[in-house]
Design a protein around this nucleic acid. Structure first.
Lengths: 243, 243
DNA sequence: ACGGGCTATTGGTAGGTCCAATAAAGACCG
DNA sequence: CGGTCTTTATTGGACCTACCAATAGCCCGT
């Protein structure tokens, strides 16, 4: 079949830059399962020799993959480039850049997150099955302990985990990662303020939410959650972002 | 206040690698609005001189920013590194990597997208306002034309735009970008098959969806959309991914 | 007025040097 | 024998110089 109008008849002989070809090669190995998380890539010098490119090219390729969260490098003997597991950090970094470029506002991000968490609850309501709340229960218990002991620093990761566990109730990893990314992103802008919040008020909200879930009152849970997040949102408004 | 137990008393004097410091500097300029989309960074050699680092370090920093979608570089005279606008490409690349790393499945991604599109319609229903459907109308009209003329290649970007416009109905850019990313991601795996689909069946679904929206039947629209996507999903199943 | 080649600028690649970190092996001492 | 210190090989990080390749704009000749 002939090419559609507007498309070039000839593709460039060499469009990609060398380091992009190297990135592609390594991505292929990953996609094919030849490289698995934890594995170590050959040393930079060795890789350069094998691929017959300069070490510089290899380094730029590794930098790209590292930035994409697929690698981490360690210096020293027995150091090297090691394959990482996937994490939400990649998406949250992308979201962060969109905020930096003024392509999306923090308000939109916040609203989107509330909507998606509500969506998770709707999904649970529709599925009919009683969700496994043990992880959330444990999280709230740990939060209660942190509040009681005044360990405000511990509350930040616990808050992140709380929303993570809500997303995890769907069993959909794509949603997990997306919501995690939003949470991570917003927490970086709230950082210190999270732990400033009144611990008792927080716990009250968490427990009300949980009891709604236990009893299958998904709409009430949704309302409790969105009201809590609204309160947090107002705190964000008072504190201009500090990236 | 004293540091919590387990935290180091002194931070390392220099923890970050040089190119990361350069990345940080440029990000700061972007966040501060000193660099705006379309602007050109100094030449690599010049930037290296100003920052007092080697050109190599500058290149690695530019590579990271380029990979994050914030820059594009052009060769030749009056070439250089130019600030880009934000796009969903950054998020879809992250999603793609998560699929490559087997952290999320295509099925999950597909389901998440259906859920989010449904969420958009729920949101519209709740808002009470009649959405502006002109963009969607135009899109379906263009699709009809492409189908009539047999220009199957044109249908792929039109399909992407269709879902984009649905997301845009919320006016929430974070949702737009997230849903765009999912669409882009899934289209890369479906690529050729999209245009194989029966054009008349596609148009019928699109028009039914639109008429539901026009009349405010959001639940019916949601059902029509999810059924259409289910059909597409089944096509995906028959075609193993080719990344 | 127009087409074609020249040239300065700029990114891309190469391949070398040196430095810093680090884990493992070996030397040393109690 | 056991623990500690030192050495050493390996590896990533930074730097440098040189050269190649693309390209926009200028200049020249027709």
């Amino acid at each position: 079949m002939a090419k559609a109008a507007g498309e070039a008849l000839f593709d460039p002989v060499r469009s990609d830059r060398t380091f992009e070809l190297v990135v592609q090669r390594i991505r292929e190995k990953l996609a094919a399962g030849e490289l698995r998380p934890g594995d170590k890539l050959p040393a930079e010098r060795e890789l350069a020799k094998q691929l017959d490119v300069s070490r510089n090219v290899v380094r730029e390729a590794l930098r790209v993959l590292e930035n994409a969260g697929m690698l981490k490098t360690r210096k020293g003997a027995h150091g090297g480039a090691f394959i990482e597991e996937g994490s939400a950090a990649q998406i949250s970094a992308a979201l962060n850049d969109l905020v930096i470029l003024n392509a999306v506002s923090l308000d939109d991000l916040f609203e989107a997150r509330v909507m998606m968490l509500g969506m998770v609850l709707d999904h649970l309501a529709k599925s009919g099955k009683a969700p496994d709340l043990s992880a959330l229960e444990a999280n709230v218990a740990a939060t209660a302990e942190a509040v009681a002991k005044g360990e405000s620093a511990r509350r930040v990761p616990l808050a992140r985990a709380f929303y993570h566990e809500i997303a995890a109730l769907t069993g959909n990893r794509a949603l997990e990662f997306t919501i995690d990314a939003q949470t991570e992103m917003i927490q970086t802008y709230l950082r210190r303020r999270v732990s400033d919040m009144d611990g008792d008020k927080l716990l009250h909200s968490r427990r009300a939410f949980l009891s709604h879930l236990r009893e299958g009152r998904f709409e009430a849970a949704k309302l409790e959650l969105s009201e809590h997040l609204d309160r947090v949102h107002r705190r964000l408004w008072n504190a201009p972002p500090t990236p």
